[in-house]
Amino acid sequence: MGLFLYLKKFLVMHLKINNETSRLRAVVLGTAKSNGGPPKLNEAYDPKSIEHIKAGTYPQEEDMVREMEAVAAVLKKYEVEVFRPQVIENYNQIFTRDIAFVIEDKFVKANILPDREKEIKAIQHVVDQIDPDKIIKLPEDAHIEGGDVMPFGDYILVGTYTGEDYSNYITARTNVHAVNALQQLFPNKKVVPFNLKKSNQDPKENALHLDCCFQPVGKDKAIIYKGGFLDSKEYQWLVHLFGEKNVFEITKDEMYDMNSNIFSISEDVVISEEKFTRLNNWLRSYGITVEEVPYSQIAKQEGLLRCSTLPLIRD
């Protein structure tokens, strides 16, 4: 037993995430295999999925698998260690960012919609490699999903919704209790909340998560959609943090297409959707390598590249 414990000490995964753009070393990428087909309207989690279910344009499994494998190939190209969930038959496991997130060396399990609890069990083979003392479960009343959480140096930027009608919105995923819990968990960080616009019906008026209307990129740049924020002062705070000249403002249609939901492999390399022409050209103008992939089918579920990745280790 002594030898086993000695060996196990060296098999533990050493988590490290302090920002969105440092060199990526390990990540959990979701899977679209055995996706289960279009959900019923009352089973959909967001207005964009509802829109495509009604229109008969909900994405096909084979197309989503093809898109996700294109991302896996890019990650392999950059020698990133990629973990995948165990496949649950007829179940959506694309958006791993929803189910957990890493800050510093802590793995925080998200308090997600009850119907999605199977998803965290499907990455148990990853969780088993983490020091149990570093695995955190927030209090039950602290609702949170990883798409709302962005470590940024001394800050943790958090999307939330503070309205009294919070419980009326299936699109409201992170509450004030979670913001407070994060501040207690990371007392050395400044947790900054942003009140996001929510809609159960209109995907063009809904910021499902913070990464649906904002994301840092490169060394000092950011992508942002002003209309995703309920408080213009909070939007202005972010613009001031990066500086106006370093901010790429996206339109309502670009937000709908998920332009702010790309994914950084490093400060110099991002994975982006191949149709994001204006954004991709802007990124390249600052010397950032853009690895373009097809991801427009995944986007029909109101999530894109950041949503389907759960970073574990960055340099």
Score class of each variant (00 low, 15 high):
Tyr295Lys: 02
Leu241Gly: 04
Lys134Phe: 09
Gln184Asp: 13
Glu51Gln: 12
Ala181Met: 13
Gly243Ser: 05
Phe10Pro: 02
Glu51Val: 09
Ile288Ala: 03
Asn92Cys: 14
Ser34Trp: 06
Tyr225His: 01
Asn280Pro: 01
His143Ser: 14
Tyr91Val: 08
Lys33Asn: 10
Leu113Arg: 14
Ala142Asp: 05
Gly163Cys: 12
Asn200Lys: 13
His52Asn: 14
Lys204Trp: 03
Ile103Lys: 08
Glu119Cys: 12
Gly2Gln: 10
Ile130Tyr: 13
Phe214Gln: 12
Gly147Asn: 02
Phe4Ser: 13
Ile99Leu: 13
Val27Glu: 05
Leu29Gly: 07
Leu5Lys: 04
Phe107Cys: 00
Pro187Thr: 08
Thr309Val: 08
Leu5Pro: 06
Asn175Ala: 12
Tyr155Arg: 01
Ile103Asn: 05
Ser266Lys: 09
Gly287His: 04
Thr160Lys: 08
Met258Glu: 08
Ala178Cys: 14
Asn261Thr: 07
Pro216Gln: 01
Glu254Thr: 09
Leu238Asp: 13
Met150Pro: 00
Phe83Tyr: 15
Gln183Pro: 06
Pro59Ala: 03
Arg314Ile: 02
Val74Glu: 05
Gly287Ile: 11
His52Ala: 11
Glu249Gly: 06
Tyr225Asp: 09
Ile271Leu: 01
Val74Leu: 08
Lys197Ala: 15
Glu164Trp: 08
Asp257Glu: 12
Ser266His: 09
Glu61Pro: 06
Asp105Trp: 14
Leu283Asp: 11
Leu157Arg: 04
Asn200Phe: 03
Pro47Phe: 01
